[in-house]
Amino acid sequence: MSNIPKKLKYSKTHEWVRKDDDVLTIGVTDHAQTMLGDLVYVELPELELDIEAGQECAVIESVKAAADIYCPVSGEVIEINEALLENPQLVNEDPYGKGWLFRMRAFENENSELLTPDQYSKLVASEAH
């Protein structure tokens, strides 16, 4: 069973969002990194880029697959996790910690389409069948 921390919000496309004041940190879930396998490359958005919710903004690659990251909220990119450019395996090793992807300043207060941990657990369980 994959790890789904209670303090985070989730998207249907397997991204997680953490809110610290007005800064949002975004990454991919433990479930997503397990499905992809050993990551070999992460492509991150450009700094200061404005992104709409649902827009493709990053790519993570394993040897046999590539997955687009869809931005869970609308906002401006203010920081990217440059450590991933050298060490993409951080996403595998610590998806909710050192494997975060990028930080944004949100345009809106809340994206109501984001899932609670319980809702996301159900989504993962339903995809397993």
Binding site: D38, V40, Y41, E61, S62, V63, Q89
Partner: peptide, 11 residues
Amino acid sequence: VRRLDEVKAAR
């Protein structure tokens, strides 16, 4: 050769 390490090759 034995089975090759494709992850190392890409990283």
